[in-house]
């Protein structure tokens, strides 16, 4: 982890609760990502995943701590960090082209109309929506709407993409196609991507690194799982990889049982040095944050890991 493109340093989010008490969604959260990395966050609802993403996007401010992107602490939103919203968030009074052009003209304010249009068109073509430029969002299917959302996010050529369960509202077939598209585009453009998902298979297919979060309130980042699958993985033969099921079982086990019991079972958990899990290679497990070497993988908690 020499290249920390994104570094979340000890952030917390608290809300004032009833009777003067404060509710802590999470605190002392440390997390880092390298440039060009695709990270997925998995955790149950209410663990603060979306809050983390909103803080990264600058839409929300942490109660404590800081977020450093590309060597600079962030304050507020930025055109360097594009967000793909769960509900696509297209402006219904604008056409497909209008929605993308709105983003383009926001980034390059001095561009004339023709230049903005041409640039927007490139990204509409990229997501495969050529021919639907003049349709309004209401005339598009769910998958097409999300494609527009992706085109809009990409059109401002951001340094990183933030995705909040972008495909959760889509049917399985469309979801698969869009995952392929997003993966292709991110690899081609070398995007750094941070995605929230509920879907274990989606995380395995897309991510280089999977962040596992425990249940909130008081959620912590429990583990960082490194994806052992090769970078040029394909959707069709993904499940034939010898480590696929070990990885999948590890994540599912975490979600089903360990996400609830993690806090009590792991009293010495250091949020600054979250264990990095290498599936199938227990001896190589190292810590993320510091220099300290830690052993995180234990055969007992994750059956089938060495498959």
């Amino acid at each position: 982890m020499s290249d920390k493109f994104i570094s979340i340093e000890g952030i917390a989010k608290r809300y004032p609760g009833a009777g003067g008490a404060t509710t802590t969604v999470f605190e002392n959260l440390w997390l880092s990502m390298a440039r060009g990395e695709f990270a997925c966050v998995i955790g149950h609802s209410g663990c603060g995943k979306t809050t983390v993403l909103n803080i990264l996007a600058g839409l929300d401010a942490p109660s404590e701590g800081a977020v450093i992107v590309d060597g600079q602490a962030i304050y507020g939103t930025s055109l360097d960090r594009a967000v793909i919203f769960q509900s696509h968030a297209l402006l219904p009074w604008r056409t497909v082209l209008g929605n993308v052009a709105y983003a383009v003209s926001s980034k390059w304010r001095s561009w004339d109309r023709a230049k903005v249009k041409a640039h927007a068109q490139t990204f509409i073509d990229l997501v495969g929506l050529s021919g639907s430029e003049h349709k309004r969002p209401s005339e598009l299917s769910g998958g097409m709407k999300q494609r527009v959302g992706i085109a809009r996010a990409l059109s401002i050529t951001p340094k990183m993409m933030l995705m909040d369960e972008p495909f959760s509202a889509l049917d399985a077939l469309t979801r698969g196609t869009l995952q392929d598209e997003v993966r292709r585009i991110c690899l081609e453009t070398g995007q750094t991507a941070f995605m929230i998902t509920h879907d274990v298979d989606e995380a395995i297919y897309l991510a280089d690194k999977i962040f596992l979060m425990t249940n909130g309130p008081g959620a912590v980042l429990a583990e960082v799982v490194e994806n052992p699958l090769p970078r040029d993985r394909g959707r069709t033969d993904l499940h034939r990889h010898p480590l696929y099921y070990a990885l999948r079982n590890h994540i599912v086990d975490f979600l089903v049982t360990r996400s609830k019991t993690f806090a009590t079972e792991t009293p010495g958990h250091d949020p600054r040095n979250v264990p990095l899990v290498h599936i199938g290679k227990p001896g190589l497990t190292i810590a993320t944050g510091g220099d300290e070497q830690r052993l995180a993988w234990t055969a007992g908690t994750s059956p089938g890991l060495t498959a």
Binding site: L79, V83, A89
Partner: peptide
């Protein structure tokens, strides 16, 4: 809708 405002915010409008 909050998300439309958020779109504008992320685009630094």
């Amino acid at each position: 809708r909050k998300e439309w405002i958020n779109v504008a915010r992320t685009l630094e409008v």
